[in-house]
Design a protein around this nucleic acid. Structure first.
Length: 224
DNA sequence: GCGACAG
DNA sequence: ATCTTGTCGC
């Protein structure tokens, strides 16, 4: 897929903050997506002591969830890991990987938060706004927000609240297993995001999309 | 000032 | 994120 560059990538928090504040105003949390036939999952890893960033994208058919295509990209790492600024470290390489795809997915599940972020602009929002695509933030741990006790059953969820605002949800994708955190990235509402995440997570804690991306990015497996 | 802190 | 083996449980 073809992607247009929207802004240069900064290397400091001072430069990153105004970019987040500006682009956060472009985030859409209403459903603006068509029929979903392909869902993509993204995963990022690091090599050479963190100096190289590696991104993998997996495209699956929906709702069958069968792997249809994948792509990998590498880049020198140019931004340190600072909570609240993850996208500046990972998105450039993710975009490189997305550009290599032949298939164009209808929805992308990102590793990390969407609007469940201090400035309502987590990695899923950043990627979504830059490429103007529907994205969902799927995080394995909490960045900000509070929530009530979560029941043990698969499918149960509770809103994530920050400053008396609902910014996402804590969701149990598997009975008795540690929950995950969902939030709108771009062009999708929270209820719809939860619905798609559940449909992409029929068996394990994490969506099949991210599991495939993980597997592909992993140095062990070889994918001809 | 003291914690908390996506990956 | 990454460094790493076996092990407990469904």
């Amino acid at each position: 897929m073809k992607i247009n560059q929207r802004h240069a990538w900064p290397s400091t928090v001072e430069e990153a903050i105004p970019i987040q504040q500006q682009l956060a105003g472009e985030v859409i949390t209403c459903d603006q997506l068509g029929a979903v036939q392909h869902v993509a999952g993204v995963d990022v890893g690091f090599e050479e002591n963190g100096t190289i960033t590696r991104a993998a994208v997996a495209v699956l058919s929906f709702p069958q969830l069968e792997l249809k295509e994948y792509a990998i990209a590498n880049r020198p790492t140019t931004f340190p890991y600072i909570p609240g600024f993850l996208s500046f470290r990972e998105v450039p390489t993710v975009i490189d990987a997305l550009e290599k795809l032949t298939l164009t997915p209808d929805l992308i599940l990102c590793d990390g938060q969407g609007i469940a972020h201090p400035r309502r602009f987590g990695i899923a929002c950043h990627l979504g706004v830059l490429i103007d695509f529907p994205t969902i933030g799927v995080a394995k741990s909490l960045l900000i927000g509070k929530h009530e006790t979560l029941p043990d059953a698969r499918g149960s969820w509770k809103p994530l609240i920050d400053q008396s605002e609902t910014i996402g949800a804590i969701l149990r994708t598997r009975t008795g297993v540690k929950p995950i955190y969902i939030s709108s990235g771009h062009r999708i509402s929270l209820p719809t995001a939860i619905d798609y995440v559940m449909q992409c997570t029929p068996k394990y804690r994490l969506p099949e999309t991210t599991r495939w991306a993980d597997k592909i990015a992993s140095k062990r497996g070889k994918w001809p």
